[in-house]
């Protein structure tokens, strides 16, 4: 499990978050997910995001976080675009401006804010969890929760295989280019992908024999090398979390998710800027990604 650290998003450290038991963190992530998906006030979600960002900063994981969040940007820009012109609210919608075939709605700006903040904050919190949890501990926890050993074995193996196969892929691409294969396009597809698969399948045979010789699956409970114990802090936090969640859901229930779409009125120029910005952002990011792949 050693080389897993290299590619997983795990950032070694000793911060508060690092020291929590994975179970506690999983409950937090699930709780945040549920809460954020029922809150309809962008300001509350924004406040939650700020808290998460502070936690990320405090656990020294900001650099890794930023790189991972980049991958979300195209979808966020797309989301803003679509929501402004087709809000996730029942009609009637209040038009703010018109740009060519598109009408920009007030509810649209509102739901663009809610949905994008929702995704960013949930993703950020989940990333914080991934970045501060040693993958091995995650699998130990999965087994503690009754997930069969075979499943966590398969997930671990998958993660270990990815960099190996990626390296194979690079060798294969150069081997085929030596045979004058086109550098891109469908004609290059089978020559590139079949050797990766066929090579990996040969690996399966060897892996299978190794497992056979270790009598995989026949013995009883698997013990893990690293000891993971739930501390008093973890129990306290879990209980507090559950009480807090009950309170939050009661508030959400009586306030109907703090829906303020009718009170918040956005100026038309803001809607236009947001709309045009999402288009520029979408293409900008895609071009940026395409460049990065080329290099």
């Amino acid at each position: 499990m050693n080389n897993m650290q290299l590619i997983a998003n795990y950032v070694p450290g000793k911060s508060f978050f690092h020291r929590l038991h994975p179970s506690t963190k999983i409950i937090w992530v699930l709780g945040a997910l549920l809460t954020v998906f029922f809150i309809k006030d962008p300001l509350i979600i924004f406040a939650f995001l700020v808290v998460v960002l502070v936690l990320i900063k405090a656990s020294n994981t900001f650099a890794t976080y930023r790189a991972s969040l980049m991958l979300l940007l195209p979808i966020i820009f797309g989301l803003i675009f679509f929501q402004i012109v087709a809000p996730a609210f029942p009609k009637p919608w209040t038009p703010l401006a018109r740009l060519g075939p598109f009408v920009l709605y007030n509810e649209g700006v509102y739901s663009a804010l809610v949905l994008s903040l929702r995704i960013i904050s949930v993703a950020s919190f989940a990333l914080l969890f991934i970045m501060t949890t040693y993958p091995g501990d995650l699998f130990t926890t999965m087994r503690m929760w009754g997930v069969p050993y075979e499943i966590s074995f398969m997930v671990t193996t998958t993660i270990q295989l990815i960099p190996i196969l990626q390296k194979e892929m690079n060798i294969i691409l150069s081997a085929q280019r030596s045979r004058a294969m086109q550098a891109s396009g469908f004609s290059a597809l089978l020559p590139s992908i079949i050797p990766v698969f066929a090579g990996a399948i040969e690996r399966v045979r060897q892996m299978s024999m190794t497992l056979e010789s270790r009598a995989f699956g026949s013995s009883g409970k698997k013990t893990s090398i690293r000891q993971l114990k739930m501390g008093t802090l973890d129990y306290t936090l879990i209980i507090l979390t559950i009480i807090a969640l009950i309170g939050i859901f009661y508030l959400l229930w009586i306030n109907q998710g703090f829906d303020r779409s009718q009170q918040m009125i956005f100026p038309a120029p803001a809607a236009i800027i947001l709309f045009l910005g999402s288009i520029i952002g979408f293409f900008g990011i895609l071009v940026l990604f395409a460049r990065r792949i080329k290099n």
């Binding site: 194979e168 060798i171 294969i172 081997a175 085929q176 280019r177 030596s178 045979r179 004058a180 294969m181 086109q182 550098a183 089978l190 020559p191 590139s192 992908i193 079949i194 050797p195 066929a198 090579g199 040969e202």
Partner: peptide, 23 residues
């Protein structure tokens, strides 16, 4: 020059055949 152009003059046999067989 591109590999495509040079590989017409210089053929390179990779060590492991599994890295190129596909058809």
């Amino acid at each position: 020059a591109e590999i495509k152009e040079i590989s017409r003059h210089a053929g390179y046999v990779f060590q492991n055949p599994n890295h190129q067989l596909f058809a």
